[in-house]
Computed example of a mutant assay.
Amino acid sequence: MDGTFKFADFIAGWFGGLCGVVVGHPLDTIKVRQQNFGTNLFVAISRTFRHEGPPGFFKGMLCPLLTIGPSNAILFGVYGNLLHLTLDNYQPRKISHTDCEALRHVFVAGTVGGFFQAIFVCPAELIKTLMQIRTGGGGSWRRHSEVAYSGSIDAFFGIVRDRGVRGLFRGFVPMAIRDVPTSGLYTMTYEALNSYFEQCHVPLMLKQTIAGGAAGVASWIFVIPFDVVKSRIQADSYNHPVYNGMLDCFYKSYQKDGLGIFFKGAPAIMLRTFPVNAALFVGYEAVLRHLE
């Protein structure tokens, strides 16, 4: 057990998060639009490109760029420091895939890190979602009401002014259900696969790419319905809300759109998740090796 506080995991997590944003934001925009407008992947892509051009895919990217670094620093910093505190002689990426006790510690540390990350990320996710559904009313994207804010900064101060700081945490419950336990699954899957591929003598970069991408897919595959509900609550009108909480959103969404709505955006999520998390872990590991 090492009681020394480690900064390396914070810095490496920050850099890895930035790598993930650059790779994945366009498909994240498409996912959010599918979940709120009820269309399929190819229609969402074609409408965005036709009416808004390439910049349409990058709407709302300012908030992730500003916050994904510190948010991943929180996740990996808490995670790494907890493992240093709870595991004797812990070394990053040296946990065996056959060591069930160590993997249990990995899961718990990832879950705790995911909780603190969710608190930090929720306001950014809210503002990002509001920007991503700003379509300008073009063509078949037209909605009965458009977002009142002109940009990410205007949205932040406008929400605080009109709704208080609490307004920034709209959609936190489904987001926490989506992110907290799956952060434990995410880190555990990565550590186990990393150890297995190490044993199989897989080249370093390929090992990190596959393990990181697979960890991302494993952490998403069970929680897509909560992501849909989170997106719908965050995109809901402040003045004339349709939904009164998470359960009400589940019920009304099912009544209006059927069971399939809870898996809207799944192809975009899966297409996005593997490369985003592969890039995140490759960047994270590169900085961690340099620092340690």
Rank of each mutant, 00 (worst) to 15 (best):
R50H: 14
G265E: 05
F37K: 13
A278D: 03
R272T: 11
V43D: 15
D9E: 14
L280M: 13
Y238N: 14
P70L: 02
S140C: 13
N194L: 03
C19E: 07
I119C: 06
G17A: 00
T209S: 12
E146A: 07
M188H: 00
C63K: 09
M61W: 07
V202G: 07
V180M: 08
V180D: 06
D257T: 10
Y186H: 11
P275G: 05
D28P: 13
T4D: 13
V108C: 02
F7P: 03
G184R: 04
R232F: 05
V21C: 03
G80Q: 01
V173D: 10
R93F: 13
D248S: 01
N89E: 10
S145Q: 15
A215R: 09
A278T: 06
R289I: 12
D257K: 12
S96W: 06
M270V: 03
W141N: 09
K230I: 15
G265V: 00
Q234H: 01
G136Y: 02
V229F: 08
P55N: 04
I210A: 06
G151F: 03
T273C: 08
V147H: 00
F226V: 05
I261S: 11
R170D: 11
F262I: 00
T86A: 13
S253W: 09
Y79Q: 07
A218D: 07
F120L: 05
M175N: 13
T189V: 06
D28K: 14
H240L: 11
A118R: 03
N81H: 01
L87Q: 12
S46A: 12
G260M: 06
G184P: 03
S150D: 15
Y254H: 15
G38I: 08
R272W: 13
L271V: 01
G80M: 06
A148V: 10
G139W: 07
F197T: 02
S152P: 04
F57Y: 08
D236E: 10
K207C: 00
A12S: 11
L280F: 11
T209A: 13
H25M: 10
Y284Q: 04
V121D: 14
I159T: 02
G136Q: 01
E146R: 07
I224N: 11
L103H: 00
G139V: 01
A278C: 07
N81Q: 03
P54N: 04
F58Q: 06
L280D: 08
A8H: 12
G260S: 09
T39Q: 14
M175K: 13
G136D: 09
L18D: 08
S152K: 04
W141G: 01
A8N: 14
L41D: 03
S46D: 14
V287M: 04
C200V: 14
S195P: 04
R272N: 15
L271N: 00
T189P: 05
